[in-house]
Structures are given as structure tokens and as C-alpha cells.
Write a protein that binds this DNA or RNA. Structure first.
Lengths: 213, 213
DNA sequence: AGATTATGATACATTTTTGATACAACACCT
DNA sequence: AGGTGTTGTATCAAAAATGTATCATAATCT
């Protein structure tokens, strides 16, 4: 079952949440300040974080950065007045928020929703990409991709069905605006070869490429 | 009418733009820094963004990323010297740019153009054009068009019912002012053949062509 | 009608773009 | 220093796109 970390400095709230989660079969850990939370995030592997924003030592936003690094979804626990916080958190990449005080049912619903929505695994025909492990398999056989190959694959997969110019690809994967280079073509070739994507990655002559979905 | 968000840190420019847009019947919002802009983009639904590049807190490129996520077209407002910015922006997927200071008429023209162009699916009898995919189907069967064929079709479809001279077509699709060439005729033929447009693309002898709608 | 001009159809030559391969530069690790 | 892996450039071959030339056909004009 999923493992959830709670970082929240008010013990009674922590206890309440843990009770709820245990009852629903989730595994839980908790930390009462940001630093302890950060340590746990690094040490262990969680499927979801519940983060208070106002925390001693390290605040929720900083923990959010940790979470992003490890690709763990986050739900913020915000106090009533902190609408701005909420917006900022969502902008920074939180997956949801819940306003304290909340009903246990609502919390569970949101957790369920985020976990379901949060696909660290992208499934394509024959290919599976696990963004948390940064691993790719073809017919369940692991395939080694270099960094650029992996990033390119991800970009293509995320933009499946859309025509992408070389310029766009370069800008987004390489963060370059070079015009006169065949780098993209070469990496497309390598991906096609490694993952049998000859048909899936369509060449659009004079335009660029399109990843068929 | 369309809703447009302006993100620009110079209030006088904002006021000017708002005045223009209101006069043309657009609904407007504005933000004076990148963060406020990001919040608005997430909260509300815009049809178009006008983005300055140099902005406090979050720059135009970052906002562009937000826009891409929500599929909102973007026009950059660039200062005179920033040609590189312009190129980078276009590569990253901006739809147009305009150099400050600009004439209100020009801004309106570009806005109009982008909004029209950004409709991603154009439906014609039997034919569907998806501009995001850069794909064309005839009776739901994909039809392969070359770049020029595709651009020509788009131009014709956008100017349905209007008589177009070869000169106009050449100017708009080929960006050429060649006089003595049969290129247009040839491409019209190819389109007619590929998409059963013998009747739909009317020949206007001594004039040019007209796409019937 | 016959001449003239404009357009349609086809074939082909040219140019441009992409695929494939080899290799050089570079970083990283031991 | 040597080995390994990644990344991008250079080169050539293959494929695709594009435009010209040519001739047939249709429309127009005197």
C-alpha cells in the first residue's frame, strides 16, 4: 500500500491524520518540523507528502522542492486565511491543497485522487517510462537511455500527437536556440533504434517530428 | 468576446493596451509582475496572453511555460534591441511578437491574426485540419500533405469564398512576388487531387482561384 | 472557324531534407 | 594515463519536396 509522509508541527492534527490514514490502509510516517521532514524524504521513498506550510526550521515550500526533486506528489495543508500560500503552492507544483480544519473524508478523497492521478509511470504501447526511477522498459526489458535520450523521450511523450519543430525541441530539451544543428535528428534516430519507434516517431519533412499516440 | 491577459510592468503601456483592446471589444486583465501573471493564468481562462519578457519575479519565458501548459497563445512584447529574445521566444513556442514601441493598429492586427490562427481544428465538408498536429484528414482518413500543400490549404481555407489572385497566394504562402511561374497552379492541382477538391477550389480564369465554402 | 491565351496534366530535374554511419571532443572514473 | 560512456559534428546516401518544361485541353477573342 502507499506510503505517506506527514510534516506538520501540531501533534493533535498529526495524530488525527495518522488515524484516518491507518484506517484506510496507508502506511504513514511523520515529522514535526521541516528539517526532520527533509531527512525522511531523502532517506525513504514516499508515494505522497502531506505538508503544512508554516513549519519550524524549513517551511513547506522548501520541502516542496525536495519533493519535486524526487518526484513525489504533494498535498498542502493550509490554514484558512492563506489563500495566497495556496496559489503559490499550486504554482510551484503542488498537486492539491486542503484547508484546515478539514473533514477526514475530504482528506482521504484528495489523497486517493492525487495518488491515482499521479502517474510516475507513463505507459505507451510496449514502452513504460518510470519518471521516479528514471528508467525505461521495452516489452518489460530495461533499456538504457542516456540523459538526453531520456529527456527527449519524455518531452515527446508529454507532447504526444503534437507536431514539434526542431526549434521547439531544442528549446525545451536542450534549452538552446541554435538553428543550424542536426542534434535533434540524431537523437531521434537513437531513440527510434533503441525503442522500436520507427513508426511511432513520425518525421514531418521540413517541420520536425510528431510522436504518435 | 475573447479574453486577453496583459503582463507588463510599465503601467502606462498597460493602460494604452487596455484602451486599445477595450475599444475593439476585447475583455482584458493585467498583471504588473510575473508572479501575479502566473496566478491569473492559473485561476482564469484566457484566450491570449500579451507578455513582456523583462518582468519582475518571473520573466516572460517562464510565463510562456504556463501558457503552453494550458494551451494559450502568446504574443511577446519585446524591446527594440532584443532580437535574440525574439528568436528564443518563437522557438519556445510563442506565436508572435511585437516590438515596442508599436502602433495600436499593428497590435490589434497581430492579436486578430493569432486568435484566428490558433483555432486548432478547422472543419470543412469532408476535410478536417488539425493545426496542432499538422495533420489533415479526408473522410477521417489521414492524408499526407507536404509543407507547401498544407500551407496553401490553410490559406485557402482561411479565405474561403474569396477570390484570390495568384499574386496574392504567392505573396502569402510563398512570401514571394515572382510573376512568371506556374507554381500556384501546380500546387492547386495537387491539393485538388489529394483532397477531392476539383469542385471546391474554383478556377477563376484570368484571375486566380476561389475556395468555395 | 481559326488563332490566341489560359489552365490542366504529366514527367522529370533540381534542390532540400533526412537517415545512417563513422568519428572526434569531452567528461568521468579508476 | 587509459578506459568508458555521452554527445555532437561531418560525411555520404537515400528520400522527399518543389518547381520547370512540355504538351494536351479548354476557354476566349477576332
Amino acid at each position: 500500500m502507499s506510503k505517506i509522509l506527514i510534516v506538520e508541527d501540531e501533534q493533535p492534527i498529526v495524530d488525527l491524520i495518522i488515524m484516518c490514514l491507518k484506517a484506510s490502509g496507508y502506511e504513514t510516517d511523520y515529522a514535526l518540523d521541516g528539517e526532520a521532514g527533509a531527512d525522511l524524504i531523502c532517506e525513504r521513498d514516499y508515494d505522497l507528502l502531506l505538508l503544512d506550510i508554516m513549519l519550524p526550521k524549513l517551511d513547506g515550500y522548501e520541502l516542496l522542492a525536495y519533493a519535486r526533486r524526487e518526484n513525489i506528489p504533494v498535498i498542502f495543508l493550509t490554514a484558512k486565511g492563506e489563500l495566497q500560500d495556496r496559489v503559490k503552492g499550486l504554482n510551484m507544483g503542488a498537486d492539491d491543497y486542503i484547508v484546515k480544519p478539514f473533514e477526514p473524508e475530504e482528506l482521504l478523497a484528495r489523497i486517493h485522487c492525487v495518488l491515482r492521478r499521479y502517474k510516475s509511470v507513463i505507459r505507451l504501447p510496449d514502452i513504460k517510462i518510470d519518471t521516479r526511477q528514471r528508467s525505461v522498459t521495452l516489452h518489460d526489458q530495461p533499456v538504457h537511455l542516456t540523459l538526453k535520450e531520456y529527456e527527449l523521450l519524455l518531452y515527446l511523450a508529454e507532447n504526444g500527437g503534437i507536431a514539434l519543430s526542431r526549434g521547439q525541441i531544442l528549446a525545451n530539451v536542450w534549452e538552446s536556440d541554435d538553428e543550424d544543428t542536426r542534434t535533434v535528428d540524431l537523437h531521434i534516430q537513437r531513440l527510434r533504434k533503441k525503442l522500436n519507434l520507427e513508426k511511432t516517431i513520425q518525421t514531418l519533412p521540413k517541420i520536425g517530428y510528431r510522436f504518435e499516440v
